[in-house]
C-alpha cells in the first residue's frame, strides 16, 4: 500500500473537497438566479405598467398625442418593412460570403485577414453603423431616412454576425459527406448545392433569425439616421419614411416627463416587441430541433 496516504487525513480532505464542491455549485446557481431575477423584475415592471394598455385599438391604431387614442400600427408596419429589406440582403450577402470564405477562398493570409475583420466588425458599436448608414445611404445615395436606408443600415449591422454563424454552420457539415459527392464526379458547386447547403441550412436559418431579432431591437443606428416618431403616414413601400418599434419606445420614454401616460405606452410597446422577439426565437429553436440532421 501507499504509505504517504494516511487514511484519516484522506477522509478529512475528502470532506473538504465535497464541501468545496457544494460551495461552487451554490455560487454558480446564484449567478444564474441573478440573471433570472433581473429579468423577472424587468418583466414584472413592464407588464404591470403596460399590459392593461394593450388592446386591439392600441395594436392597430395610428399614432396620436392623446395617450388614450395612440396606437403602434405605424411602428409595427415600419419594423415589418425594414425586415423585408434586412432578410434578403443579409441572407444573400451573408451566406454568399460564408460560402466563399469556407469553401472557395484559399486558406492563407488574405482569408484570415478578412475573417479577423469580420469578427471585429461584429463587435463594432451599433451607433457607428448608424453613422455609416447616414453617410452612405441617407446622404451619399440620397435616399433620405426611408425604409430602404434603415433596412440596409440594420442589414450591415447584423451581417458580420450572420456571416460568422453561417461559416460555423458550413464548417459543421462533415467532410465525409462532401467527399462522397466529389468521389462520384460532382463539381464543387453541385456538392455545395446538393450536400453542403442542405445540411447547413437549419443552422444558417437559426443564425439568421437570431441576427434578425437583434436588428429588430436596435435603436441607436435608427436615431442617428434621424428616424422620427411623428404623425407620419403608414409606410407602404421601400421609399417611404417610417418609424419602428424601438424608436417608438425611445420617444415615448423621452416624453414621459411631459405626459405621464407615455410611460405606460412605452411599456406596452416593449411588451409587443418582447413577444415578437420571443416568437422569432421560438421559431429558431423549432427549426434547429426539427430539421437539424444527425450525421
Amino acid at each position: 500500500m501507499i504509505k504517504q496516504m494516511d487514511a484519516s487525513q484522506l477522509r478529512s480532505r475528502m470532506n473538504r473537497r465535497v464541501r468545496a464542491n457544494t460551495v461552487w455549485k451554490t455560487i454558480f446557481l446564484l449567478a444564474t438566479l441573478f440573471g433570472l431575477f433581473v429579468l423577472a423584475i424587468l418583466i414584472i415592471r413592464v407588464v404591470s405598467q403596460g399590459a392593461s394598455w394593450i388592446d386591439m385599438d392600441f395594436l392597430t391604431g395610428r399614432l396620436s398625442t392623446d395617450a388614450e387614442r395612440a396606437g403602434i400600427m405605424g411602428a409595427l408596419l415600419g419594423t415589418v418593412w425594414v425586415m423585408f429589406v434586412v432578410i434578403p440582403v443579409t441572407l444573400i450577402i451573408g451566406v454568399g460570403t460564408a460560402i466563399y470564405l469556407e469553401l472557395y477562398a484559399k486558406k492563407g493570409k488574405f482569408q484570415s485577414f478578412i475573417e479577423t475583420n469580420i469578427s471585429n466588425l461584429a463587435g463594432v458599436p451599433s451607433i457607428v453603423y448608424g453613422l455609416l448608414g447616414l453617410t452612405v445611404f441617407v446622404r451619399l445615395a440620397d435616399l433620405g431616412n426611408v425604409v430602404l436606408a434603415g433596412g440596409l443600415t440594420l442589414a450591415l449591422l447584423v451581417l458580420p454576425i450572420l456571416i460568422v454563424s453561417a461559416q460555423e454552420a458550413i464548417r459543421a457539415v462533415p467532410a465525409h459527406l462532401s467527399e462522397a459527392s466529389y468521389g462520384m464526379g460532382a463539381t464543387k458547386w453541385q456538392t455545395i448545392r446538393r450536400v453542403v447547403l442542405p445540411a447547413a441550412l437549419p443552422s444558417i436559418l437559426t443564425g439568421s433569425i437570431l441576427a434578425l431579432s437583434r436588428a429588430i431591437g436596435e435603436t441607436a443606428p435608427l436615431t442617428v439616421l434621424g428616424i422620427p416618431a411623428l404623425l407620419i403616414p403608414f409606410p407602404e413601400g421601400l421609399f417611404d419614411t417610417f418609424t419602428a418599434l424601438p424608436m417608438q419606445i425611445y420617444y415615448w420614454t423621452l416624453d414621459s416627463s411631459l405626459v405621464a401616460e407615455y410611460a405606460n405606452l412605452a411599456a406596452a410597446t416593449i411588451i409587443v416587441l418582447l413577444v415578437l422577439l420571443f416568437v422569432l426565437n421560438s421559431v429558431a429553436i423549432f427549426i434547429r430541433n426539427k430539421f437539424q440532421q444527425r450525421y
Binding site: P174, H176, L177, E179, A180, G183, V195, A199, Q293, R294
Partner: peptide, 10 residues
C-alpha cells in the same frame, strides 16, 4: 470510391 467509414447522405 468507398470510404473507411460508411458515409451515406442524410
Amino acid at each position: 470510391m468507398v470510404f473507411q467509414k460508411p458515409n451515406p447522405f442524410p
